[in-house]
């Protein structure tokens, strides 16, 4: 809670012209945004580009953010998610026209057991994947996920439910305790 208030205070300071406040927001949010984007795309360079583009957008439209309308974290995640979807769609189109022009995806494999969960998350339908990632790894309430993805709350609940079932089926582990 204190951290959230700090984020909002920093944003207000940045809107008032304090450049250091923007740097502080960047260092507070960078890891979280990157982790979400990387887990979604599994593309290091793309994730870095989107985090940087998110902050470029924040700078360009710094006065559009209104603390009364919501917290800063979902606001930044919403920008990043929109940018990511646009870039992935553009990449998909480019790939269909010029297959050899699409940049190579650099993915690193750390451990065999991580591969399993990585692959399972990668195999989730994109809409379920985003919800699982935002809900589990970023501690975002379902209401804020609905704002980020611009979908109704009921859709978030049902996609989360289906995503969990799909993930369990993909992992194929022992789910007796569930």
């Amino acid at each position: 809670m204190a951290r959230e208030r700090r984020e909002e205070e920093l944003m207000t300071a940045y809107q008032a012209g304090d450049r250091d406040a923007l740097d502080a927001i960047y260092w507070l949010m960078k890891d979280s945004l990157y982790s979400f984007l990387y887990r979604y795309t599994r593309d290091e360079q793309l994730s870095i580009d989107i985090v940087q583009d998110t902050f470029v957008k924040l700078q360009q439209h710094k006065h559009q953010y209104d603390p009364a309308m919501g917290k800063l974290k979902p606001y930044l995640f919403q920008i990043a998610y929109r940018l990511m979807v646009n870039k992935l769609n553009r990449r998909k189109k480019l790939k269909s026209f010029f297959p050899s022009l699409v940049p190579i995806t650099k993915t690193s494999i750390d451990m065999a057991d991580r591969m399993t969960i990585r692959e399972a998350i990668g195999k989730l339908p994109p809409k379920q994947r985003a919800i699982i990632l935002l809900y589990y790894y970023h501690d975002l309430p379902q209401e804020e996920i609905a704002v980020i993805l611009e979908i109704p709350l009921g859709t978030v609940k049902s996609r989360l439910h289906h995503g969990i079932h799909r993930l369990k089926a993909l992992l194929g582990g022992d789910f007796l305790e569930a």
Binding site: I117, I164, K168, F175
Partner: peptide, 9 residues
């Protein structure tokens, strides 16, 4: 209640 899934995540 999804202990296994959480441990994997």
């Amino acid at each position: 209640k999804e202990r296994f899934l959480r441990s994997k995540l």
